[in-house]
Amino acid sequence: MGWFDALKNLLSGNGAGDVRPGSQIRANVSTSAPVSAVVAAAEPKRVDAETNSPVMDNHIFRLGDYVGIHSSSPNGRWVLSWSDSVPAMGIGGHRESGNGSYLLYDAEAGQVVVRGEMPRPNGGHVADSGHFSLEDWHFGSALSGTFSVFEPNGQILFAKDVTANVMNSEISRNGLFALFQTANSPTEDGRKLFLIDVSKRAIRYAIDPLAGWPERYSIDEDTAQVTAHLKDLGSFRYDSEGAFIDAAKLAQAKLSSPRYEFAIPAAEALLKSPDLTAETARQVLDIVKRARERGADQIDAWNAKSLKLQGLAYEALGELHKAVKAFDEALALDPKIGVKRKRDALFKKLG
Rank of each mutant, 00 (worst) to 15 (best):
W3N: 01
D5Q: 12
A6S: 15
L7S: 03
D18R: 15
V19Q: 05
R20N: 13
S23A: 12
R26Y: 13
R26M: 13
N28E: 11
N28C: 03
N28F: 09
T31G: 01
T31R: 11
S36K: 14
S36T: 13
A42W: 09
E43I: 07
R46Q: 12
S53C: 02
V55R: 15
M56A: 13
M56E: 14
D57E: 15
R62A: 13
D65F: 06
Y66P: 03
S73M: 11
P74L: 11
N75I: 11
G76T: 12
R77P: 08
R77L: 10
V79K: 12
S81E: 08
D84S: 12
S85L: 06
V86S: 11
G90M: 08
I91Y: 01
Y102T: 06
Y102F: 15
L103Y: 05
E108L: 12
A109V: 04
G110I: 07
Q111I: 07
Q111C: 06
E117M: 10
P119Y: 08
H131G: 08
S133C: 14
L134H: 08
H138Q: 13
H138G: 15
F139T: 01
S141I: 06
A142R: 02
A142H: 05
S144C: 10
F147V: 01
E151V: 03
P152H: 11
N153P: 01
D161H: 11
D161A: 11
V162M: 01
V162R: 01
T163I: 01
T163G: 06
N168C: 04
S169Q: 07
I171P: 01
L176A: 07
L176H: 06
D189G: 02
G190K: 04
I196A: 00
V198W: 00
A202K: 14
D208R: 00
L210G: 00
E215C: 00
R216F: 04
E221Q: 10
E221S: 06
V226D: 00
T227Y: 03
H229T: 02
G234T: 09
G234R: 10
S235H: 10
D239C: 00
A248L: 03
L250W: 02
L255F: 02
P258K: 08
R259V: 13
F262L: 02
A263I: 04
P265R: 01
A266T: 08
L270T: 14
P274H: 11
D275N: 13
T277W: 07
A278Y: 07
R282G: 09
D286C: 03
R292G: 09
R294V: 10
I299K: 14
W302A: 05
S306R: 06
K308S: 14
L312R: 12
L312A: 09
A313N: 05
E315H: 15
A316K: 14
G318M: 08
H321I: 12
K322S: 13
V324H: 05
V324L: 04
D334N: 15
K336C: 00
V339G: 05
D344M: 04
F347M: 05
L350Y: 06
